[in-house]
């Protein structure tokens, strides 16, 4: 009998996906199933936290934000 698992399908660039896999590798508590190069299925209640962690990782790589504020 087939199973239906509730989750959130995440589609993104391969680079982002590898970061997600990396984040998950710490405790294995995010990913339900790794579908292909651009998609993973993640636990519904962990999506917000995952987004937060992903943002943190990406912020490390951003150039310093230059808000000139000139008119």
């Amino acid at each position: 009998m087939p199973r239906a698992i509730r989750g959130v399908l995440i589609e993104c660039d391969p680079s982002i996906k590898s970061i997600i896999v990396n984040i998950d590798s710490v405790n294995h508590d995010f990913i339900i199933e790794d579908l292909d190069e651009e998609r993973v299925v993640v636990k519904e209640n962990m999506v917000q936290l995952l987004k937060q962690k992903l943002e943190d990782r990406l912020k490390e790589n951003l150039p310093p934000v230059d808000e000139s504020g000139s008119e």
Partner: peptide, 13 residues
């Protein structure tokens, strides 16, 4: 950077 769709994964057919 990612697109999320909530729903259900069907497997084990």
């Amino acid at each position: 950077r990612m697109k999320t769709t909530s729903g259900f994964l069907f497997r084990d057919f």
